[in-house]
Design a protein around this nucleic acid. Structure first.
Lengths: 215, 215
DNA sequence: GCCGGTATTGACCAAGCGGTTAATACATGA
DNA sequence: TCATGTATTAACCGCTTGGTCAATACCGGC
């Protein structure tokens, strides 16, 4: 009765991909061992052979989700912007676009997030991932604070980074729950106005145009 | 075998309270008919007698959660602040404090939120509740934009309100997942610095002191 | 070519789920 | 006081779940 065999790593990867598909489509509590097995066209016993407990599967999937969701990649175009505040706002805008275009991945992440308040291992994983993500923004935030000390009085780099992440998450969450009614361009413009309002005129026009074309 | 009887409304209230307790403590997927019945010290058949389907119970609980979570009440102290931007920031700060002090209620709300991306009735309920909440902020935002037209160029009242809600949710969510490591005072100060940085000096000190004592 | 280790399968289990229903005890009005 | 209606209970049903396990077919090494 057994079917074709495969290497340990191949099978785990296949099963994880199936788990990702199931959880992404139907939510984290539809992530049953049987559903994953069916999606991967394997017996459900085999899933539990490679991931001894369902918990292991859930945790492994979390790693995959975090790695693909909160990896901040900065384009060279952004780094080339002369003004620190422009760079900061550009990165925020990039992430708002990216995450709001992946509502299902974002929803899955938020389901893990809520799960984390009860499941300690999930909590620490989510926490550290977010902390790394925030740390990436802190780098930009520090430059902003050095360049515009008067603009953000009493604001720390950590606090500013936290604000940035909140704006990004808030945008993604809004886009997640009702994608059509949420006006992402308006939101992005408001974020820009709140965060990136400064004196230099020449550099300000660049991002404005970019926002218009993207929206 | 039957026990004491009670009026329709009394029982529904009792059951809903039990449901709230269960879901608040153990999460929304621990909200089983049997768990609610056990919590209320009733038979699980009785729960399904008053709420014909589990779905009805879940939806009724959602109404309760939304009513108690996103009801914006404005103190007269806030309304007495002369500067529109100060009022705006004060309301944001108040809500950050309130929601971050209720991590379990907030987690329950987010679980419903995530659930809403699959369950249409949940989605519309959550959506409209959030829309009302945002509308309350829009009132303040309009005053801000009238008072400080130069400060927020290109920003609409709706967009500014959305930013405010994002900051509040971001704060509450951070506080939800790891309450001790998250520095709410720093976050609040940053939000204040980003949003409420303006010229008038006398009115600015008030909120600063209030923040320090509350933190 | 065959042989041993193991990846794979399907049958099985107990537990828990939402939902139904007949029996029953409680309240209430006559 | 008694009859009637119904809120309440417990037993039950079918189903799904996570997890176990013996049987088995595949594959690499000899």
């Amino acid at each position: 009765m057994p079917g074709q065999k495969a290497s340990e790593e191949t099978r785990r990867e296949q099963i994880l991909a199936a788990a990702h598909a199931v959880a992404s489509r139907n939510g984290i509590d539809a992530l049953t061992v049987r559903a994953v097995a069916a999606r991967a066209k394997l017996s459900h016993g085999l899933v539990l052979f490679h991931f001894r407990r369902k918990d292991e599967l859930v945790t492994a999937l979390l790693d995959r989700v975090l790695a693909t969701t909160f990896m901040l990649t900065i384009s060279e175009d952004v780094l080339r912007l002369p003004n620190a505040l422009d760079r900061f706002v550009a990165v925020i805008r990039q992430e708002m676009d990216r995450l709001s275009q992946e509502p299902r991945r974002m929803r899955l992440f938020f389901e893990y997030w809520a799960l984390g308040s009860r499941h300690s291992r999930v909590r620490t994983k989510v926490s550290t991932a977010l902390e790394q993500y925030r740390a990436a923004f802190r780098t930009f935030a520090e430059e902003v604070l050095q360049t515009h000390p008067a603009r953000f009085t009493g604001v720390t780099a950590e606090g500013l980074a936290a604000i940035a992440v909140s704006l990004i998450n808030g945008c993604a969450v809004q886009a997640m729950i009702d994608p059509e009614r949420f006006d992402i361009a308006e939101y992005r413009a408001a974020a820009h106005g709140v965060m990136g309002h400064h004196e230099t005129r020449a550099v300000r026009r660049g991002p404005r145009v970019a926002a218009a074309t993207l929206a």
